[in-house]
Design a protein around this nucleic acid. Sequence first.
DNA 1: CACGAGACCTGTTCGC
DNA 2: TGCGAACAGGTCTCGT
Length: 277
Amino acid sequence: MPELPEVETIARFLRQGIADQPGILGRKVAGAQVLWARTVAEPDVSSFQERLPGQTIQHIDRRGKFLLLRLSQETLLIHLRMSGDLIVEPLNQALAPHHRVTLEFEDGWRLAFNDARKFGRMWLVADPQSVLGNLGPEPFDRSLEGVGFYNRVSSFRRQLKPLLMDQHFLAGLGNIYTDEALHLARLHPLTISSSLTLQQSNLLLDCIRQVLQDGIDRHGTSIDWVYRGGDYQRYLRVYQRTGEPCLVCGAPVERLVVGQRGTHYCPSCQVLSALTS
DNA sequence: CACGAGACCTGTTCGC
DNA sequence: TGCGAACAGGTCTCGT
């Protein structure tokens, strides 16, 4: 579930609360449990557990697919990877099977990091930049407008699908929203980035922003057992619609594998010309 | 530089 | 019904 719209949705719910889960701003950490050591990427587990107590959650931000919990002294960065989720629940509730780390607050609540596949990671650091490194720009960054995105896209000779998913190129897109944006822009996933015209690249940027904003407005995409309450899955154009009719032209959606990722597109709307492959 | 394969993990669905 | 293969929202590292 976690691409930019889902992480943004979680950031908002952690700030404001949702349904029976209160927000966590202003809460003070009393202790931390680590149930799967590798979830804590930095520092070592004992330092992690020693440094968290006493720190208060002051701000919650998102950068790409990273969540940033700004604490009194440090920042806790969380990456949900494939199956991570964050749940606010009462301390007296039994620990669910896939909880990997929990932060216990003074007032009877805890924040639980639930992650079936164990790919998720968190970092407790003084300087978030040490983790975020050379992450690419946010898709809504104004510097991409005009020729900004065009200059970036055309500086690489790479297939669009893997390029857009490369977090060093642009921060936030994953498999779902990349397929959706390419379909909306009528660009074949294998199009070589340096072949795009200024008009095409600006259309692509607009489409990326549109699918991300729609995803945020719909509170993300909920598929299978990872559920966040979003319903953007009802509006997907091609993702996981192999064989079903394209919503634009009716041709059956096709699936191919690009960079080891399932890739969905309409062979009629998204034509790969010899010049751009 | 760009791409593909393999790792890291568990759970669900598909095909025979 | 049963069982292995394929597949899943991500990212890193290595070899070519």
